[in-house]
Design a protein around this nucleic acid. Sequence first.
DNA 1: GTGACTTTCTCCAAGTCGTGAATTAAGTAG
DNA 2: CTACTTAATTCACGACTTGGAGAAAGTCAC
Lengths: 401, 401
Amino acid sequence: MEYRRTTVRDMRRSNRSVILTDIYRDGPLSRHELSTRTSLSAASVSNLVTEMIAEGIVEEAGSVESEGGRPRVLLRVAREFRYVVGAEVGETRVRVELFDLAMNVLATVDYPVDAPEPDVVVKHVLEGLTSVIGTSGVRASDVLGLGVAVFGIVDSAAVVHAQTLGWDAVPLGQMLAEGTDIPILVDNGANTLGQAEMWFGAGRGATDAVVALVGSGVGAALVTGGSSYRGTRSSAGEWGHTTIMYGGRGCRCGAEGCLEAYVGAEDVLDRYRQAGGVLTAVDEEAAFAEVLAAAESSEIAAGVVDDTIGYLAAGFANLVNLVNPERIVLGGWAGLLLGEHHLPRLREAVGRHALRQPYSQVSIVLCELGRDAVALGAATLPVLRLLRDGGALPPPKVAAG
Amino acid sequence: MEYRRTTVRDMRRSNRSVILTDIYRDGPLSRHELSTRTSLSAASVSNLVTEMIAEGIVEEAGSVESEGGRPRVLLRVAREFRYVVGAEVGETRVRVELFDLAMNVLATVDYPVDAPEPDVVVKHVLEGLTSVIGTSGVRASDVLGLGVAVFGIVDSAAVVHAQTLGWDAVPLGQMLAEGTDIPILVDNGANTLGQAEMWFGAGRGATDAVVALVGSGVGAALVTGGSSYRGTRSSAGEWGHTTIMYGGRGCRCGAEGCLEAYVGAEDVLDRYRQAGGVLTAVDEEAAFAEVLAAAESSEIAAGVVDDTIGYLAAGFANLVNLVNPERIVLGGWAGLLLGEHHLPRLREAVGRHALRQPYSQVSIVLCELGRDAVALGAATLPVLRLLRDGGALPPPKVAAG
DNA sequence: GTGACTTTCTCCAAGTCGTGAATTAAGTAG
DNA sequence: CTACTTAATTCACGACTTGGAGAAAGTCAC
């Protein structure tokens, strides 16, 4: 609460941030374009760009052919100015990846885990961190930060709460910080995937969007005004545990009638079995695909799929009415399987549940990035901070994304 | 999208805004206190305050006794620097009120309406505007703005959509602007009441909150990061039409199982009648109170009340999980009646539906202001703008709140 | 009263920053 | 090679915050 004043330095930082973000997001741009985009004077752009080139964060990238005048020199963020690491802590694996600033993967390590114990997870992440740094040949001091995507709720002090996995207030950020000097940013996996999708996938260009993830679990990342919405203590977006059927099916969170209890993959299969359906696949994903395929011929399967679309549509409509996004991006392995075949029906069903006005403003699309984008999204956390700070390098160590 | 740069003037405006807002919100403050609060240097505070005193927006308000030094001079916003008008456009009346900057009511006019036609509403609001200006003896040029609270969805161009009342894309802002030179700000009534609660009622001090209103209809105002959340096109907050019972009771919005269809006053009475309950009261409010009173003795009534609490709790839990507010403020006449008797049970029921972590961070309280605060809230819209702009007077005419 | 002391507030000389106008740089067209 | 066009840089200027010095306005002991 003590950063309320504005000083002349905030002004410069803010202008650097605007320029740097534009260059980063909208690819090589000339000084001239930056000037018109940001409405900064040509002089200021020149000044700020010169400074950033001297610092090494921005570099010139050829020039564009002219039509009778001095050609524009294009600028881009120097890919190798610094590097970032993203870690995905899942229920079955820990993956650590190192990227350059253009988000090219330079190294990857995977560690399988069966039951994710905090200590083991911390060990793997730290091992992974030194491993990817080592194999890529990058200097540790050139790593801008480590973004960690984790299941459960992550509060603003990087403490993780995951009721279903027995993680009760695990200070993951602290624990990791004890093993490295690299700045650490922790966030929920749904949020980081959402972040990746917003930057590089189906969310590009939107400022108010929701990235909805349907797999075994159900979650959503809320993006408002261009940045991720977190609520008071960073636990916003638990869309999967909103009630859509009061007094309905029990959910693993302990409540009844949660959306997840109707459209989560396990629950869909469960409903299919209860309706008398038979599954041959052992694997959950294969079984889910089997139900979808069976819907062509089997009435039972068709009914289950229809219901699933309906429930999901109601969940979407709730988002539309409550949050009024311009875009909803559906992802998660189950969400994608469902969406690939039934997106038009889903859209239509949302229209039946939502109010006309906000519904007319939303577009519903599918995720474009695979599940692997979780670590990518985590790695964007330090990049986001870099851009926000106008390229100033971070001093502190632990924080929530 | 063209206000992205920061100039040296933005800095001053921003600092003026911070100081002015502090003085306005936290009552008489000395320059010294302002300096420590804002972390601006004493020199800057002095400079900015001198300027604002010269402009007349801030005035000195006595001094505080010292303990052996120069006494601090207290500063406050000059109550009579400018005035604001708030209009409430309801389904049965149009009310227009004039306030000074301390939000004291200086004049009020009411116009009963039966079916709110856009033309009639515009006529009444404009008549009311000249009327309150006339009776209070304020100069029209000293009226900072007219805030209008209206039912339905208000988009960013001050166009009103109210499906249920037949208002389809009514350009209320434009229509009003043709009849006056005073700047106009239009917003939804739930939002303005929420705004009033946040400033002067149960929401004080919270930055992420939801003001939930339960009457005949059900709505909510979402406040995130201290300011009202609006979504892409200002239609966020339609909490009443989120599905909590898939395939359930039909709602007047056309969908099924909306929260409003379960906890809206009409629907509660309807459920009571369907359960075999008998009502003597003709008036809706009296009837609602009758059901609540009957719950002491009648099992039918008790059942209906229990269910209502449950449904409402589920609706609250959805907000808790999805938005993660630090406070939920329950209001609306039915909400207040229910809350006065059953708030503890409601809180407990929310706990059963919500996730532990976000639930532990939310407090659920009742509105402190009456229904009349709708116009008050509308009148805060121009004040909010004044504070945001650091006391600079507004040039444009029409906009959404 | 008076002098010593304390605290609040204001004035002034830096130092920083964005801007507009003028200037330089770097092309194309004929 | 000249005329023209467009991009980028330079520079004087005004607006801004700041820290420190000093003025203002009290209290307190005597």
